[in-house]
Every structure is written in structure tokens, then in C-alpha cells.
Design a protein around this nucleic acid. Sequence first.
DNA 1: CTGAAAGCGCTTACAG
DNA 2: CTGAAAGCGCTTACAG
Lengths: 339, 339
Amino acid sequence: MGADDERRVTITAIAQEAGVSVPTVSRVLNGRSDVAPGTRERVEELLRHHGYRRRGSRGVRRADLLDLVFNDLDSPWAVEIIRGVEDVGHAAGVGTVVSAIHSHSTSTRQWLQNLQARASDGVIVVTSHLIPPVHAQLRRLNVPVVVVDPAGVPATDVPSIGATNWAGGLAATEHLLGLGHRRIGFVAGPPHLLCSRARLDGYRAALEAAGAPLDERLVQAGDFYHASGFAVGSALLDLDDPPTAIFAASDQMAFGVYEAVRQRGLRVADDVSVVGFDDLPEARWASPPLTTVRQPLVEMGRLAARTVLRLGQGEEIEAPRVELATELVVRDSSAARPR
Amino acid sequence: MGADDERRVTITAIAQEAGVSVPTVSRVLNGRSDVAPGTRERVEELLRHHGYRRRGSRGVRRADLLDLVFNDLDSPWAVEIIRGVEDVGHAAGVGTVVSAIHSHSTSTRQWLQNLQARASDGVIVVTSHLIPPVHAQLRRLNVPVVVVDPAGVPATDVPSIGATNWAGGLAATEHLLGLGHRRIGFVAGPPHLLCSRARLDGYRAALEAAGAPLDERLVQAGDFYHASGFAVGSALLDLDDPPTAIFAASDQMAFGVYEAVRQRGLRVADDVSVVGFDDLPEARWASPPLTTVRQPLVEMGRLAARTVLRLGQGEEIEAPRVELATELVVRDSSAARPR
DNA sequence: CTGAAAGCGCTTACAG
DNA sequence: CTGAAAGCGCTTACAG
């Protein structure tokens, strides 16, 4: 977004090409209702095609802005994504507007209005079901959208960036199997999230491949936060035939499991192996340091920003869905099965 | 920031009032050098007085934006502040632009340019020495500034919002003294930061008031991050006459101290009491849960946003410097001195 | 539903 | 250092 985009189209150019007057294009742009459907469509097509964006008079450069939307800002997760996006945005002279919509419809509407007023160049949505009407509205505004860590199977026309959750679930479980564990508990994430399901499937696939029994009582869902890890971890450890290892679908839940283990007078690693997912900064500093599956959150943010910026310039994206590699980081919370 | 600010001044009005032409005002606005000092001053004064902000043609509403600037986005800290600011901004229809300048001058210059392009309504600077030229530039742009957790003694003309660091340091140390500890180590923050110095002074004041000896070997500075807590904690514990309690000026350093304690085969609380500062979400989930001094980070963010928004509307601020109360949260990492 | 006209807020040469 | 003039990109009545 430097000097290279000085040559952007004006509504005058669009009007000419569409064979309509300037005011008509202006009306389409502002979502006024008094435009014939055919005209509207033709103009919108051209606006989209040229990647039109409103400009001020003469050399008045518009603000270059990019919207980064979370459901909530209460996870240590969020700041990693922000870092990645900000990094790329900053370098490109694009500001990163961070919002939390709390899955609340009035909040979402408010946000959409704000977004429109600030004429954002692109939107990055993190782990969210952006409801279809919002999508439609964004399309009308001609704002490119990229989804990070898609909540559900993303629409094919919206680029998405995720991590290889299935492979991560597989790797973590194989690691525990390799240490001799056979009864491996799984603290899943919320079942409606795609990433949760992929991690769970990876866990199952590893067990199956190893010919280990799949005991459904060993699988229970949490909500990614500490408390649920503690609750589910406790439930698993209180089973008649408790697991010797527990794989949690988030680091925070893994720390909750730590607590559950300790509360029972057991030791992490020595008595119960624990593996997490995310590799938050604190994983390295937990005691014992947590074995976990690393998600490249900063890189995901970076890629999302680059993608949405390129989209904004009218460039084509090669792959609409990208998954960045996860990586198993072995530390001290996992050990050979006690005999 | 709603419909209420439609009536803003234009440069035409300013020009008239200043008795100069419109282009001259435009030049002042754009920081062009070819304006006589006297003229510039007069025009700037009027711009400031009327709270001028650039507008597009006709009814083109400008983006309502607020800049939140960190040195770095690598602390779990940051997200708490962001939450507070976003919360207030969102409700007011104002977008929160988050940046990290990494105390890097090119990065800062870049940011300033971006800020100017996006015509931000206000700037919230977190724990930073915003160098004087930057301040001067912001003033020229007529952008209100609020500092959160000021790095140094803030200029009297810049409102600042902090926490009662001194009182927090005092409370934590008194707590440990009350548990019978006399040799209390202190892992300080970076000495150039005001908050570090205040916490340290609180620690000293408590010792002094209790008539406890002040051993300077028991005070060593870290950088607020984990690793330094581990390093300093280790050094303190390796002293000939080690402390029975360690107060760290950040939660992350406190967790580093946990590691140092464990590495020596000692137990937190039972053998060495540990107290932190911040009350990050993970403090509750550490094992043992960390006794710490709570900083109301979200509230600090909220107040900063409200303040900068009010400043932007030309309102007067009652108190230029506010400190929100810290609070000692006693959990399980502190215990009576072992005999 | 659409365009010709007027106009807004601003900036950029140009001249002095 | 400053202003009169031209002009840009857009929007808003107004008329049909």
C-alpha cells in the first residue's frame, strides 16, 4: 500500500465504463435503494473488478486499514494473531483495527457500521461463524475477507487460513502411544468448531492405526479454557480405569489437567503424561514444561494479513484454503508409561 | 462520536477567522515548511481551539479511530489493555488501531505517518517513552494523547493513567512480613521504568516500617519476562543466606522464580514464599496459585479510551494523572516462614 | 430510476 | 511566504 496504489480508479472512470452518470455510481456505492437492479449489478461488478475504494479530493490519501475481528479477546491466543497481523500491516502502512464482537448481534451490527464508516481495506475474521447476512454486506462493500482458524467448513469463496489440526492431533497421540501409553484421555475442544473436530479425529486415527482400543468414555469436551481442563481432567482421572496419559486440545486445558493431576496426589509425567495444543509462551515455563503441539499463530496472522492485502489489490489468491503445519514440541510433561 | 460532531469546523472557517487564505491553512495542516512562523502559530492555535479534523466532501463521514500503541505485543499484559480500550471504543463507534513500535525509530516514523494518514482521533501510548519530537508532531496534528502506565514521570500536560504501584509493592511486602518473613528477596523490573521504581520503593518502605533489615543483595532487577525471573530467583536462592520469600515485580518473573525454587528441590510456599505482580489470568492456574498484586489492566484501558475520547471532543479532564488501585490477591504461593 | 447542475472540502500548481 | 485560480472526487438536491 505505498505509492503503488495512487492510480486507483475513481467513480468517474467507473461511470464511464458502465455507461452511467457519476451520481448513479455514487448511489450504488452508498447502498441507496433507488437504483435499477440491472444497473446496480453492472456497476457493482465493475467496482469489484477494479477494486474501487473511496478517495478524498486530490491527493488526500485514504486511511489504509485492516480489520481484525475476534469473538472475544480473552485468550492469550489472540495476542499472537494480532502480532502477526500488525507486523505485516505496519510494514505496509496499514493500520490494524482490532475488534471483539462477542457473537452478539447488536455488537456485530455496530461493528459493521463502524467498518463501513472507516472504509476498511480488508477483514480478517478469527474463529467465527460470520453469519451470511454479514458476509453479504461485506461483499456489497467490496471488502475482501479472510478467515483464520475457520469455525466451520468455510465457504469455498472465502479464503481461510488454519493449522494442520488433524496432523497435530495425530502427532500428539502417536507420541504418547510411542511412550507406551494405551489408555489416553482426550480433553476435546467445543464440538462445533472445525479445529476441535480435526484434533479429535487425529487422536482417533492414531489410536486406530496403532490398534489401540478406542474408549469413548476417555473423550470429553471442554471449552479450551483452564477450568474445563480441570473439570474434564478430574473426571477422567476419577474413572475406574483412569488413563495414564491425557491429551488436551488446548494448552490452557492442559494446565487445568495439571491441577487435576496434582489434586489427586499424582505427578505430571511420572504418573500421568499430559500433552497440550497451541504452544503458548507459558507452555515453556510451566512446571513441568509442557509437551504440546505448536500452532504457528503469528505466522497465521502474517499470512492472513498478506492475503487480505493482496486480495484488496485485486490479486488472485492461489489457494483459497491454507493450513500451516503444526509441530509437536516435546518437553517434560510426557514420559514413558509407568508400569 | 455520533451524529453530534457533524457541525465541525472546516478549513474555510478557520481561514476566515485567522484572516488568511484557505490554501495557507491547508499548508499548516500538512506540515508544509513554507509558512511564516507567526501565521503557523495563529492557525495552529485556531485548529486546536476548534478541534479541527479533516473531512471529506459533503457528507463523507470520516473514520472514527483511536490508536493504541505498545512497544511490543509480546506480553499477556497487552491483551488486557486492548480489551478495555476496544470495549469503550466499540461502543462509541470508534475503531481501535493497535500498533507495536518496538522502540525503533524507523518503525515509529512509519507509525506516525500512518497515524496521520488515517487521521486518528486520539492516541493511547502504553509504557513508553514517546520521544519529544513525536509528541511535538502529535500536538501539531492536534491529536489528544493519553499515556497508560507511564514509563517515566510524565509531562504534566499529558494525561496519564497508571496503577498504584507503590501501594502494591508495599502491600505485597507487608503481607510477607506479616507471615513472619524477614529476608525477602525482590526481583525488580527494569530500573528505567517508573512502575518498577515505585514497586521497589513500596517494598523498601514496608521493610523500613517493619524495622526489617534492608539487604541490597536481596534486590536484583529483571526485565519482567520469565527467563529473568528464573535467573534472578536462582541468584537469590544461591546466596549464602538466601531469602525465605521472594517478591517478583511481575507474574511472569514470579513463575520464573517458581522454576528456580523447584530446580533446587525446594517447594513454593512450604520452603519459599513467592508473590507476583499483575494478576494475569494464569496466576490463578499456576501451581500453586500465585499470590499477587492485581493491576486493573482492563479498567486502565477503559479509562484511557474514555479520557482520550473526551479530550478529542474538547472536554477538559479533571485530573491529568490518575492511578487506579492495585489489590493484593492472596492465594497459595505465600505461607508462614518455615522455622 | 437517472442525469445535469451545483456545490463541498480540500489540495496543487502558479505567480508574485 | 502567501493568495487567486483551477481542479479533484465525491454527494446532494432537483427535475423529469
